[in-house]
């Protein structure tokens, strides 16, 4: 693997370039991203839904001018969907087309690049340009996929029996995300740098809201963030995350609400709380009028 330049000069550089890409990183996020780049290690981002894990990967791609390749994990994801697959239909056609050929000839031909369907992991490894590989919702995939990832992420090479070993020419920047519905294996965690994304501090959340909904008056943004924090302190089934805060800000703006009072909160609560019991609880504890 040829020596390659680091993408970022220092922590402040990460911070500035992510901001230019529309992502407001705090100090911990910027440092961890910087280290992932320096130590050339995959970055495992864990946290509740809607705090901007996937957004971070997208912003990274745009900040470094790299292409984003995404592997969405789901139950039953296997090697054929994650790594590569032989296009056997095309191979069958090829065999039928060349009926008179000797088998050796055909054999060499049908296991060539032309018949290889490259899936995200292999695509990312074979690319020569800067790449950000996003492995999204890793916890949704089965345990066997983790084994596959271990192999790919530790050496950045893939062995295809018929073609030989393919080694990455340019090591992609790997971001794995997880909602922590299950604990990922120790082995996988050991190979990654770990970043836990939680709910942001009030000041940062306000900044995020204002960046996403610039037309919103600052005072309203502050009121919304304060109320969201009050909601987060309750024992709810589903705690509202940043995505919901932004949705709320957009709703408030669209409805032209200019004072964020009981009535406004009660009428738009459905945007942030998506369980009836959570809504009932919030209405009770914030003493909103319940009609």
């Amino acid at each position: 693997m040829p020596l390659q330049q680091h993408a970022f000069a220092d922590v402040a550089d990460v911070h500035d370039r992510l901001r230019a890409a529309g992502y407001l990183a705090d100090h911990a996020i910027a440092t961890t991203v910087f280290l992932a780049d320096r130590l050339r290690k995959p970055l495992l981002v864990e946290g509740p839904a809607g705090v901007g894990k996937t957004e971070l990967a997208k912003a990274l791609a745009s900040a470094t001018g790299a292409e984003l390749i995404r592997l969405q994990c789901y139950e039953g994801l296997d090697e054929a969907r994650a790594l590569y697959e032989w296009n056997y239909k095309k191979q069958l056609l090829r065999i039928q087309a060349g009926r008179d050929e000797a088998w050796d000839e055909t054999h060499d031909d049908i296991f060539s690049d032309e018949f290889l369907l490259s899936r995200p992991l292999l695509t990312a490894i074979r690319r020569t340009d800067p790449t950000v590989l996003l492995i999204d919702e890793t916890d949704k995939a089965d345990v066997e996929v983790e084994g596959l990832l271990l192999e790919v992420l530790s050496d950045f090479q893939v062995t295809i029996p018929e073609l030989g070993t393919i080694v990455a020419r340019q090591r992609p920047f790997v971001v794995l995300t997880s909602n922590a519905t299950r604990e990922l294996s120790e082995a996988l965690k050991r190979r990654c740098l770990y970043l836990h994304l939680g709910y942001p501090s009030p000041a940062r959340e306000k900044e995020i809201v204002l960046a996403c909904v610039p037309e919103l008056p600052e005072q309203l943004a502050e009121a919304i963030v304060g109320t969201i924090r009050a909601l987060r302190a309750m024992e709810l089934k589903k705690v509202p995350s940043i995505a919901e805060t932004i949705d709320w800000a957009r709703t408030v703006l669209a409805l032209g609400i200019d004072t964020f009072d009981e009535e406004a909160v009660a009428s738009t609560l459905g945007v942030v709380l998506k369980h009836v019991s959570d809504q009932a609880r919030a209405i009770g504890q914030l003493k909103l009028s319940s009609n």
Binding site: L35, A180, R190, L193
Partner: peptide, 18 residues
Amino acid sequence: LDREALRAGFAATMCKRP
């Protein structure tokens, strides 16, 4: 010199459970 960066760096490498 940057203590908070050091904290983040250590957390990223050694503290992998919330």
